[in-house]
Design a binder for these strands. Structure first.
Length: 184
DNA sequence: GCTGCGATTGTCT
DNA sequence: GACAATCGCAGCG
């Protein structure tokens, strides 16, 4: 397992190129992570953990190497990897990836054949991750984080998306090829 | 191709 | 009661 203990904005770019794999009844699905965002704790107003521990965000305070799954806008699931250093709640939101296995299964889950994993809600749905998996460990069980080789592409650092606070924090990390092509 | 807006529900104040 | 780390579709150029 990768070393996930450290400041989220330092760990986040290390996750680019890693693979997130799920093995459920339908079969195995796997994506290469190409887009992430870092969310810290008390020093990050945009973080769910900023206002302290609640029932929803409790897993952000738990040990690193676990999932933090929350519902967004009442209908989507978003997947984070907990990377907190001791005593600090923080996590890395998985925003996007490229399908590396189980394309057919993912198409069925998504109900489409394009735009499969280019957003946090989509990626979670593609992998079949739901609130049931909140707090799941990533080094064993049906969901695994697999260390991959570096993508060998520049990593772009940009402000985070979809938030209304701390919008200036440059804590979004994207593998360059993603933005260069944008699609197709 | 790009922009704008409605959908839908758990969680927190 | 208000808001939210989003998505997909309709509409226009």
């Amino acid at each position: 397992m990768i070393d996930l203990i450290g400041p989220p904005h330092e760990i986040a770019p290390l996750l680019l190129g890693c693979r997130l794999r799920t093995e459920f009844e339908e079969g195995a699905t796997e994506v290469v992570i190409t887009e992430v965002e870092a969310y810290s704790g008390g020093d990050d107003p945009a973080s769910h953990a900023f206002n302290g521990r609640t029932a929803r965000n409790s897993h952000m305070f738990g040990p690193a190497g676990h999932l933090y799954v929350y519902r967004s806008y009442g209908m989507h699931w978003c997947s984070n990897i907990v990377v907190n250093p001791p005593g600090q709640p923080s996590a890395v939101l998985i925003r996007g990836g490229e399908v590396s296995e189980g394309t057919e299964i993912i198409k069925q889950r998504r109900g489409r054949s394009d735009q499969l994993t280019d957003g946090p809600g989509k990626l979670s749905q593609a992998l079949g991750i739901t609130g049931d998996h909140d707090g799941a460990g990533l080094d064993s069980g049906p969901i695994r984080l697999i260390e991959g080789k570096p993508l060998g592409r520049p990593v772009l650092t940009t402000p985070r998306v979809g938030i209304s606070k701390a919008v200036d924090y440059p804590w979004r990390f994207v593998a360059a090829a993603e933005i260069a092509t944008g699609n197709t």
